[in-house]
Design a binder for these strands. Structure first.
Length: 480
RNA sequence: GGCCCCUUAGUCUAGUGGUUAGGACGCAUGGUUCUCAGCCAUGAAUCAGGGGUUCGACUCCCCUAGGGGCUACCA
């Protein structure tokens, strides 16, 4: 029987969940679900300066919103916890001690100033800036003296010299790192907390992670983790380094590339499934020509073999298309509740639920996100609109037509779509006007704009009193 | 600087030695329509460059160029 797949998403709560991070989480989640494995969430909060509980909370919210539920992790617990690195200090400490006793690690008492000085000297000499191993050969007495002197004590990994490291990556293939690339790196900081490369390797091993699926920026770090695995006698997981997501200028995606935080998209009213669908196609495709896939379809189709090796660029235009596609297709039934809070208060007060649903049905035809609702809903705002500039020109002198409309709608029996159409038609017939010349003045009288939703719908929703009032007001200004 | 990774239209991608290089977003044109959107149809646009290997390279190898990442007591 094959071992059960265990994957993890291991963010550090030092910022908002990013499109790139979300995509990494998604690939892990999809793989776990596809394989019937477990998806684990681990919080890498060993950088106490930059980590915060609030950001962790936000991170969990964002993942939850995306629908990427974890099987083990914060809030949920699990057999291999704790899942927050700040709560695992004793574990790292113990393993680091073991490395020291094996001779694979040693305490280091160099100060920041010393390190900084040596580093710049090496750079000046044209050498790669690596730790020179000063503390590697300290005797027990010397170590005690340093401690008595109150020097900061960190623990360094004694990196094996002159060995080239090899790694099999599911996406990159066979990767070879030549010897001498890495110096003795710190595994436990002077504040007692572990560094990323140590904590990640230890936790991945202890948590039984079978596939480490993470961003390509970690590929070079992997050799540091490999030596930790070997020194501790841990079995290596399978490494899967997925390509990065870049901004439109091809640099690493960041804030200035247009709101790449999940929280921003939540706030702006994008459907989560649109984000998930879009993200899934950044660096992956199902291999056929489908483009719109539900969560279930994504899970069924997702395999690591189909993950691309080249980076992709985050394209808001395509996300917007996909989002509007979801909103159009889902319509009132799927999205009305979610969209409701985006309607301006004035509109929500004036109209009943039925009308609001009708409005949303119309708006949902062309909505990249719910945050576009206030602008799109303008034609349904009650009361006469302003007529400015060229727009006024299109009703100027059309007082007769407007009067006929006002009269027609005031007398019309009922307020159904058919009756409304009939009234418009009969006004046109009476004044021998049709097409644009007939509809535009009416549209402008009601909305003040040449664009907008279907006119009959506008009339239907706004109601007789508002319609007649608007037309009257427009007629007054238009002259005859 | 050193090392590692990447390279099909503007963008997301299909493609694994022989294809008119397929699809999608965006763009353009036409149709439907009171307008916008939608929908339908049509169109422009791609294998980074150079060497090999081969009867034959988008596909395999090498070089160059470009991009990205790592080189922290950040992850």
């Amino acid at each position: 029987m094959a071992e059960q797949v265990r994957v993890r998403f291991a963010p550090s709560p030092t910022g908002y969940l990013h499109m790139g991070g979300a995509r990494t989480a998604l690939f892990n989640w999809l793989f776990a679900r596809h394989e019937g494995g477990r998806f684990i969430l681990r919080i890498e909060d060993t950088d106490v300066q930059r980590s915060s509980a609030e950001l962790e909370e936000q991170l969990l919210e964002d993942l939850h919103w995306l629908g990427l539920e974890w099987d083990e992790g914060p809030r949920r617990g699990g057999p291999r916890g704790p899942y927050r690195q700040s709560e695992r200090a004793a574990v790292y400490r113990e393993l680091a001690e073991r490395l020291i006793s094996q001779g694979d690690a040693y305490p280091c008492f160099c100060t920041d100033e010393e390190l900084e000085r040596k580093k710049s000297e090496m750079i000046a000499a044209g050498l790669p800036p690596q730790y020179d191993g000063t503390c590697r050969s300290l005797t027990g007495d010397e170590r005690e003296r340093c401690r008595r002197d109150g020097l900061p004590e960190s623990i360094r990994f004694a990196f094996p010299e002159a060995v080239s490291m090899e790694l099999e990556d599911t996406i990159r293939g066979h990767v070879v790192f030549p010897p001498g690339m890495v110096g003795d790196f710190i595994i436990i900081r002077s504040n007692g907390l572990p560094t990323y490369n140590f904590a990640a390797a230890v936790d991945d091993a202890l948590m039984g992670i079978t596939h480490v699926i993470r961003g390509e920026e970690h590929l070079s770090n992997t050799l540091r983790q490999i030596v930790v695995y070997e020194a501790l006698g841990f079995q290596r997981p399978r490494f899967v380094h997925i390509p990065l997501i870049l901004g439109s200028d091809r640099s690493k995606l960041s804030k200035r590339h247009g709101a790449p935080n999940i929280a921003d998209f939540t706030r702006n009213g994008y459907p989560a499934e649109a984000i998930v669908n879009y993200l899934a196609f950044l660096g992956w495709s199902p291999g056929d020509e489908r483009e719109i896939l539900s969560r279930e379809e994504l899970i069924a189709a997702f395999t690591l073999e189909r993950v691309s090796s080249s980076p992709s660029i985050f394209d808001l235009t395509k996300l917007n298309w996909m989002s509007s596609h979801y909103i159009r297709t889902g319509g009132v039934g799927r999205y009305f509740e979610e969209a409701l809070s985006f309607f301006p208060g004035e509109v929500r007060e004036r109209y009943g639920r039925g009308e609001l649903e009708k409005m949303f049905a119309i708006l949902s035809e062309n909505l990249p996100s719910f945050s576009a609702i206030p602008a799109e809903v303008a034609p349904f705002m009650p009361g006469p609109p302003p007529f400015e500039g060229e727009v006024f020109g299109m009703i100027e002198g059309r007082g007769g037509l407007l009067a006929a409309f006002a009269d027609g709608f005031a007398r019309q029996e009922g307020w159904g779509r058919d009756e409304l159409r009939k009234t418009i038609k009969s006004v046109g017939k009476k004044l021998a006007v049709k097409g644009k010349d007939l509809y535009m003045p009416l549209r402008i009288a009601l909305t003040g704009s040449v664009h907008g939703p279907d006119l009959v719908s506008i009339l239907e929703i706004r109601g007789r009193e508002d319609v007649v009032n608007c037309i009257e007001r427009a007629r007054e200004r238009a002259g005859s």
